[in-house]
Amino acid sequence: MTDITNTPATEYEAQLGDYFALLKPRVMQLVVFTALVGMLAAPVSVHPVIGFASILFVAIGAGASGALNMWWDADIDAVMKRTAKRPIPAGKVQPGEALALGVALSGLSVMMLALSANLLAAGMLLFTILFYAIFYTMWLKRSTPQNIVIGGAAGAFPPVIGWIIATGSFSVEAWLMFALIFMWTPPHFWALALFMRSDYDDADVPMLTVTHGRPSTRRHIVAYTVLLAILAVGTGFTAIGGYIYLSFAIVLNALFLLGAYRIWQRDEAMAEKDNYLVERKFFRLSLYYLFLHFGAILIEATLRPYGLGGW
């Protein structure tokens, strides 16, 4: 009874939803989808229960690294408008709770993936969590403008893990899916950095917009988009590609290149006049871009047993 009388009426008590928000559910969606595509595109079938459990543990691992990221970045999250409402800066969850949740779920997800799938998949999940939570969050993010470029690898590992869940080994196709996300991440985040304007400046995060300026960021977006387009269309001619993927890739990359070209052609005065409309459109397109590329790989893999997908 004492805990009832001693609890101030105004003290916020974290709800399940607050802890769930620590796991970055939107990032988890992307992780689940790309890992699932990686698993289903592999030439080895997986039992549905094993597949479901394994993807769930990959998602929990991704969520755990998100909680660790929020624990470490609570100070800069409080400064940036985009992240100020996250559970820790909003005062809903204590930093220690986020750390405990992140560590516990990391251990649980890696251990359970080793049991449900294989040791290599579990090792890759552990590597991904450590890469994101320690290498990216604790070091790269605050020390170099290449933070997004190198750190993007953390978000690119899920399809590789998915592939390993099915096959137990690495392959060129898995690394092509990795490369697709890896090359997509910088233009996606740099477009965001362009229209979020002062957020990264205020938080002293050395984003390219802060260290090299906005015109340089616009040039970088074009350069990475050209490399990404070559890679994305080229993937269409490999074992995970086919007519359907190639059709998607040609249309999406033409649109993406056009968007990048428009960003390159603009300066800050033009962008501010229409409230960064072109940059916002490019960012929105980038979300569909990745979803549809992986969706096309999934369609090819689904149709292949019927002699329709692939080449």
Binding site: V49, L56, S116
Partner: peptide
């Protein structure tokens, strides 16, 4: 889930 996994394995 663990029970189902065990059964399948």
């Amino acid at each position: 889930l663990v029970m189902a996994l065990t059964f399948v394995k």
